[in-house]
């Protein structure tokens, strides 16, 4: 069933269209910066954008930072929200269950497919960012792969350090998306409308982002799902500041476990009336 779900997801034109749209925004940003040579001032705008004028290979991380706050969660919420509710809407859910595919098994397959989408999307965005960065940005003497890059802390990072820190970043960003995926999947088992599930998951994120800016919400700040999303910047400090990254991973893990548990508990005993 897992293979079937993966095949269904990745043979669907919509999946690739979503990923292509995700790639579009960082590419546009890269081209604009390359043409105008106007980067955001350090400390402003999306993370790392000020640094990419000097070294294009950092654009892989910058691309992730560009899509992370909104585009990536939207794409993940759409795909995950569609997973069960989409089958219900098309009527295929009842036929899959009487085929028979066990309910837990179906949910697990949907989960794996959603996580696979997250992983593929993040890797492709990073890869595109890297290529685009190398092509358009960071010309000049510092641009070659062997050149050192200045870390957020001001010291120099070797290209080797950049490579493995980028890889950890890709993993961290993908993991950060699993909370959204789990939320959308849970909502997807509650409703027969994929749109409701996706929008519900997004509302959850927007709510969290909004509370983050509110001083009065300080007490619940560490528990908000988007709190540590941008903490991957700490991976480019020297030495790496692991504390927030670790907390981010732990928090996402808790959200994923709780929401998936709720999704399973609901779906396993649900009356399928679609």
């Amino acid at each position: 069933m897992i293979v079937i779900e993966l095949r269904k997801l990745f043979r669907r034109p919509r999946t690739w269209l979503t990923i292509a749209l995700l790639d579009l925004l960082p590419t546009v940003v890269a081209i604009l910066i390359a043409v105008t040579h106007v980067g955001p001032r350090p400390g402003q705008g999306p993370a790392f954008l000020s640094a990419v004028l000097a070294n294009g290979s950092l654009f892989a991380v910058a691309a992730l930072a560009i899509v992370l706050p909104l585009f990536l969660p939207v794409a993940v919420a759409v795909i995950a929200g569609d997973s069960v509710a989409g089958e219900a809407q098309s009527g295929m859910l009842r036929y899959l269950l009487i085929r028979p595919v066990g309910r837990t098994r179906l949910l697990a397959a949907k989960l794996v497919a959603t996580f696979a989408f997250v992983a593929v999307a993040v890797v492709i965005v990073a890869a595109t960012g890297y290529l685009v960065g190398r092509l358009f940005l960071g010309h000049g003497s510092q641009a070659s792969l062997s050149a050192a890059v200045t870390s957020v802390s001001g010291s120099s990072l070797t290209p080797g350090q950049i490579v493995w820190r980028t890889i950890i970043t890709i993993g961290y960003v993908a993991f950060s998306m699993l909370g959204v995926a789990a939320m959308a999947l849970f909502l997807s088992t509650l409703t027969d409308s994929p749109l409701s599930a996706s929008i519900g998951a997004l509302a959850f994120l927007i709510g969290s982002s909004l509370l983050l800016t509110l001083d009065a919400a300080r007490a619940i700040l560490p528990y908000l799902p988007t709190r540590y999303w941008l903490s991957f910047i700490d991976l480019f400090r020297d030495p790496i500041l692991w504390r927030n990254v670790e907390r981010g991973v732990a928090l996402q893990a808790i959200y994923v476990v709780v929401l998936l548990g709720a999704a399973w508990a609901n779906f396993a005993t649900k009356d399928i009336k679609s």
């Binding site: 269904k8 669907r12 098309s90 009527g91 295929m92 009842r94 036929y95 009487i98 085929r99 028979p100």
Partner: peptide, 17 residues
């Protein structure tokens, strides 16, 4: 039981694409 049963429930369903 279900592998030995064929069923049509409240109209057919299929993936349109």
């Amino acid at each position: 039981v279900l592998p030995r049963v064929g069923a049509l429930v409240e109209g057919p369903a299929a993936y349109g694409h």
